[in-house]
Amino acid sequence: MKLLLRTITVVFVFAGILAGCLTLLLLVILVVRFPLVLIALVLACWIFSRIQRG
């Protein structure tokens, strides 16, 4: 029973890592293809850092 639970956990962890890598890759492709997305992303990060500083 413990082996089955560990196997299912490993499968879910692997699927989560794979989905995260795929999301990051698609985001990079989107930023390279559409430069406005890069500008919006940089602007959002800048605004977020300004809000955090207070």
Rank of each mutant, 00 (worst) to 15 (best):
M1C: 14
M1P: 12
M1A: 11
M1V: 10
L3S: 14
L4I: 14
L5T: 15
R6T: 15
R6S: 15
T7R: 12
T7E: 15
T7I: 11
T7Y: 14
T7H: 10
T9L: 15
V11H: 02
F12A: 09
F12L: 12
V13H: 09
V13Y: 08
V13L: 05
F14A: 13
A15S: 15
A15W: 07
G16N: 01
I17K: 02
I17S: 02
L18Y: 02
L18N: 07
A19T: 03
A19R: 03
A19Q: 07
L22P: 06
T23Y: 06
T23M: 09
L24M: 13
L25Q: 07
L25W: 09
L25V: 09
L27K: 09
I29F: 03
I29V: 11
V31S: 04
V32D: 04
R33S: 00
R33V: 14
F34Y: 06
F34C: 08
F34G: 00
P35V: 03
P35E: 06
V37S: 08
V37N: 01
L38H: 07
L38E: 06
I39K: 04
I39R: 02
A40I: 04
V42P: 02
V42F: 03
V42N: 00
L43K: 07
A44S: 04
A44D: 01
A44T: 00
C45R: 09
I47S: 01
I47W: 05
I47N: 05
I47P: 01
F48W: 15
F48N: 09
S49M: 01
S49N: 05
S49T: 12
R50M: 09
R50T: 08
R50V: 04
I51W: 04
I51Y: 03
Q52P: 04
Q52Y: 01
R53I: 00
G54R: 07
